[in-house]
Amino acid sequence: MIEAEGLYYCYEKNGDYVLNDLNFKIDRGEFVFIIGASGAGKSTLFKLIIREIVPVKGTLKVFGHDLARMPRYRVPYLRRNIGMVFQDFRLLEDRTAFDNIAFAMQVTGASSREIRRRVPYVLELVGLPDKANAKVCDLSGGEQQRIGLARAIINRPAMIIADEPTGNLDPENSYEIMNILRSFNIRGTTVLVATHNHEMVKLLKKRVILLDKGRLAADEAKGVSAGAL
């Protein structure tokens, strides 16, 4: 599903590498934590995966496509297959929960009938069946992140990438969010989570990729590296 080979990236020409010779492979249906200190390159890696930026060296294949060679007009279609979850939720606060989730479906040209059918179902999956008409600004942080998760899953993406999804949440809400992500994973969606939340990494015992100053410092199958931090 994701293959990185000798992957390098730097933000400025001749600047330091933010990602330095990364090599890894993530298969369909995996749940992977990407961990590392701030500036280790986690967010940069996610930007590369959604092709917001392109590698300066090496190759990155997502769903079998070499992203450096992907024409710009194909990028929206790549992103429809990747659900994204952000630390700051990135919701439209003046709109309802329903509108925020429907928004991602409208983009793909879905009919309003399909939207009316699918949004309540997804709201149920994230445990907010009665919040469809609530304005996002009236929801708690945990609820907002669940709306973010619902939006990420609405188009049945093959993969979800979550950048610090619990960074702004208390432990109880963090646990809920991780549980929802795990439930998506059980249904077959590949999940990548960048996090600082070591407790969660230890608890879930999933594969962990540890980045250190842009290099791959460890790639452990059962959350062992979390202890090394």
Binding site: Y73, P76, L78, R79, M84, R90, V107, N155
Partner: peptide, 16 residues
Amino acid sequence: RREIMIMKYVGATNWF
């Protein structure tokens, strides 16, 4: 711009 950025992230084409 925030709305536009979110649209880009959820896979909207530029013309959309």
